[in-house]
Computed example of a mutant assay.
Amino acid sequence: MENHRHAPQMSIYTCPMPPEVNGTQGNSCSTCGMDLRSVQQENPDQYQVQLATLPQIIEAGHPVRLLFAIKKKQKQVALDISDEMNIHVMVISEDLNWFRHIHPVLQQDGSYAITQTFHNGGKYHLFTYFKPLGKEHVLNMLEIEVKGYYMTSREVTSKKQICYIDDYTIILENTDNFKTGNIQRIKIAIEKCEKKLHNSSLEQYLGTSAHILMINKTDKEFLQIRPIPHVQYPIYAETNITKAGKYKMWVQFKIHGKVHTADFNIDIRSIKESEKEVQLRQHQV
């Protein structure tokens, strides 16, 4: 077993009032409007996430045991339950075309373990999200290499706003309006047999109606977004995206005991870019 190299621990920003609202620097709380504050300003490196694997070399197509140890000053750290789990790990391929949301299980030695199979070779990012006992949430990113054949896939370039899963059609309705500099409303409709579903059709998943995750294609900036109730959309959220670029979004929801994962490609434009387009159209008229 060996520890894999990891990127610096990332700072999570939460609301001072409802701390379950989180985002990135510059975001405002979608509930009360307050500026989000960093929960790791005192010592962002006080917690370490150590990853070991069995076998040591990870090969595509073969199961591997992932063992996570959360430590502070080389001592195991006890974790609170957060969103129904002790630890959340979002596993994302470098090209953003493969995603898994996994929950390693507590072992007798204090570590957390789970078995996973990677079907494609290449680099993967493991975003580990947890809450030390009595402390604030921590987000850490690890990188691993999977040996074996790398099957190229479509780049995250063109917009994708409709996803088909089983008998469901999931629609991200307002992708043309996504831009930096203001509150971004995420409106997601779900249809089955051409009938629109309401919020009451969804079961609780990880303590809320859905799980929304966005990641920037260029620098892998990570953003978790918590849905809020809405009379029209079964999944609705508000956030403030500070950086323009191409993003991948995953939306997870639960119906009849089964978790479904929809994915979308989004192009976030800067507010200045949007203003220039408006001025150009006005000039052409």
Rank of each mutant, 00 (worst) to 15 (best):
A7T: 13
A69N: 06
T53R: 09
K71G: 03
Q252C: 05
K192S: 11
N97P: 01
I212L: 15
Y247C: 11
T239V: 05
D35L: 08
N199F: 02
K187I: 00
G257E: 11
V39Q: 06
V105K: 05
V64M: 11
N140R: 10
E145R: 02
E2H: 13
K72I: 02
H137K: 14
I225H: 12
I92R: 04
K187E: 02
Q161Y: 00
F99S: 01
I255Y: 12
T180H: 10
E84N: 14
M214N: 06
L66M: 08
A69G: 03
K160E: 01
S11F: 09
S158Q: 06
E173W: 00
A113F: 00
N43E: 11
K160H: 00
K196T: 07
F68Y: 14
V231P: 01
P63R: 04
Q282S: 09
D80T: 07
C15W: 06
R154Y: 00
E42I: 00
D219K: 08
E273N: 13
H119G: 07
T24N: 15
G110K: 03
E173Y: 02
E191R: 09
I170S: 00
Y112W: 00
E2D: 08
C29P: 04
F222Q: 10
A7I: 14
Q48S: 14
H256Y: 11
L139M: 11
L79A: 03
E194T: 08
T239G: 03
I183R: 09
R5I: 13
M34G: 11
V146C: 03
L133H: 11
